[in-house]
Design a binder for these strands. Sequence first.
DNA 1: CCAAAAGTGTTTTAATTACACCCATGA
DNA 2: TCATGGGTGTAATTAAAACACTTTTGG
Lengths: 240, 240
Amino acid sequence: MFMPEVKNSAVSSSYKNKEAILLAVDCIIFGFDHEGLKLLIFKREFEPLAGHWSLIGSFVNKNEDVEDAAYKVLKETTGLESLFVEQLHAFGRINRDKGDRVVSIAYWSLIKLNEENRNLNVANHEAHWVDFKEVPELILDHNEMVAMALTTLRERARFRPIGFELLPDKFTLPQLLNLYEAIYQTKFDDRNFRRKILKTGLLIKLNEKDKSTSKRGALLYKFDYQQYDKLSKDGYLFEL
Amino acid sequence: MFMPEVKNSAVSSSYKNKEAILLAVDCIIFGFDHEGLKLLIFKREFEPLAGHWSLIGSFVNKNEDVEDAAYKVLKETTGLESLFVEQLHAFGRINRDKGDRVVSIAYWSLIKLNEENRNLNVANHEAHWVDFKEVPELILDHNEMVAMALTTLRERARFRPIGFELLPDKFTLPQLLNLYEAIYQTKFDDRNFRRKILKTGLLIKLNEKDKSTSKRGALLYKFDYQQYDKLSKDGYLFEL
DNA sequence: CCAAAAGTGTTTTAATTACACCCATGA
DNA sequence: TCATGGGTGTAATTAAAACACTTTTGG
């Protein structure tokens, strides 16, 4: 019979003599506009690897929640208080950071681009939006983080109404279609797409048109968060 | 225009003067047998909260990968080298652990019960399998971890063939059906279930019967991992 | 008046659901 | 021989996929 070793075991038996480790958060920030899906990257400001492209991050202080550390970075970087944020994964390989042993907990977020945060690269030359298909080499394991975030974004977008987190509050159906086509890098039939998304009953049709992309103009819609929350409690599963 | 504060910012600018934090892993271990889906819990061996029910865990050493720390705990606890393991979530609230500031990275795993690990509670009185619907109060935020693991298990089981990780290599369709019914706590129509799972072409029918639960005996099947891996590379998505 | 994007319906095909009886066997 | 769990098929409904033309309007 299997008999676990209890002494000298991996399983901890007190807090004594434990080695503390540096803890960081890194943020994968996605944005979307008429040019497509984008990722926000930064020029690293300190050695090693100063000047290289990087995700934005921060060390976690001993007296702050890990999640708060991520929110703080996101608020400072994007100027937004309210955005979609979700923990992605903890990256814990011994040598992932050449500077010291650092375990990084990555968060991914979706932001609604506006005049202010769209031009971050002007206001702060260290920040830059790049096409998510053309992400340059990033430091450490940050490219791995981005790849995982993209996979997770695709998984989530299918079963949760998170696409709306990347669009303005008022959006058109062609915009929404473009977004999904960008996320999945494929074309969808617009008639089937419209039918499916409207059948959910979660889009509120407004009496306004967006004429910025055509002479005819496209009807604007809002996502009905209230109704979605209500349905979710009854087990409703959004699916696209 | 939005102008990020660059000085005194949350965003880190060096490794100097950063506070290290204790890092732990905790493991949510699921098993399945004729009695249903079970969770492996332990009696905590050290203060504070010694003697209370807990998940099994370990501190992470400065010179080991986080993932390796989890594997080590799982191997020591279950006696198994090869099992399904996936990172669940990093739990990082400041006061989650009364003993000290500890950030815990939780892993969930699925094990195939056998004669040895089924009787862990005999060999090691500190370990105990409990029905997943009747998990007692656990220390710290461990109940939260279990709840999240269960949600994740349900999400994953729908789109990945992970149910087989909880069954013996050779299993019957009634066993498989019972497993899914246990995971989702609902009844499925057995004819529809059989049709769907067999239509994937991923089950290899063996010329053996399991007569342990009926006089007639039920046909044994194996999951075709090779074929699944091959199809996965071509973008095949398992769905149940 | 025309270029360019927005918007609309139908048919075919495939998947899902609902449902009830016969089979094999050891005790 | 019978109780027990194992195994099978079909019809109805619903969802998905494929496909092309009309509408609106500013320039």
